[in-house]
Design a protein around this nucleic acid. Structure first.
Lengths: 154, 154
DNA sequence: GACATATATTTGCATTGACAAATATTGTAT
DNA sequence: ATACAATATTTGTCAATGCAAATATATGTC
């Protein structure tokens, strides 16, 4: 009764993801930001003016962690918080001009990494892989909603 | 010039990986261990007596972090370090009987998560996905060996 | 065999991260 | 209007993380 790591999906997923993340962390470092910061910037570039909760879900970052990342980006004037949009509890996060500019300088690098990761993949294969990753995510989403798992204490 | 997150591989990869990781973290917590601890245990169960360096590479955990995770597991007597195997610099990490037993109690749960993640996938699709993830990892490996990337300061 | 270089692991230290509690605001029921 | 639950964000606190330096051993050179 042994788990074959080399054929175990969560392992392969984590391994591939970590590999890209470590590599890209080194790359964005040259622009003076961390990987989580990059994720926030590109998520805002993709969808401007999100609220903290949305942004946390989109980036897979816990909101309490996100608060501090946003603090850091705000201190560097790459983004700004805007309060009071009907609901005064919420905050809208916006890119500043320089935040937008920095993000757009990094995007080509990000695309390059994707290209490298997918080298040897046909366009069809790449599309298929992405689709499967979306299905994976959706499957786990459903799990969260139903099966809140409990230990087998027996 | 905008990066479409919903079709950007590193994003999809991170999102799917994080989702499984968060969910499984909650699950193993009931057994009194963290996700990184689980990764170490299952990596040892898969290949007993690894050295720190190997184990770090296999689990995608930095060795300095790994040292402390191994400390924690050793304190709970789930694993043990054995020194001096020809090369006295190195350490071999072994599961104890109770470490093995704990790991084997969790393996079915781990397999369940994989099954859930892959629900709706045919066996062929699942095999294809895993194969693609291996190719992805190998592609990034080659990048590390060649392209040590520098900022475009221009 | 002493000396420089390489490899394996651990430790120091500052940063990051996550859970839980606190704060602020909104919506709802009475 | 008041009280109570729900939602959005931030803060407190402490453990986890990762880089760089330190330590220990091994290997190669002269």
């Amino acid at each position: 009764m042994r788990l074959d790591l080399g054929d175990y999906l969560p392992y392969l997923l984590n391994r591939a993801g970590t590999k890209i993340a470590v590599s890209f962390t080194a790359a964005v470092r040259q622009y003076g930001i961390t990987l989580p910061m990059w994720r926030v910037l590109v998520a805002l570039h993709y969808d401007e003016g999100q609220r903290m909760g949305q942004l946390g879900r989109l980036t897979s970052i816990d909101v309490s962690t996100l608060t501090r990342i946003v603090d850091g980006l705000e201190n560097r004037e790459l983004i700004e918080r805007r309060r009071g949009d009907g609901d005064a509890r919420s905050v809208r996060v916006h890119l500043t001009a320089s935040g937008r500019s920095l993000t757009e300088r990094i995007i080509p690098l990000a695309e390059h990494y994707e290209t490298v990761a997918l080298s040897g993949f046909s366009a069809d294969e790449a599309a298929l892989l992405k689709d499967m990753l979306r299905r994976l995510h959706d499957n786990m989403d459903e799990l969260d909603e139903t099966e809140l798992p409990l230990a087998n204490t027996g």
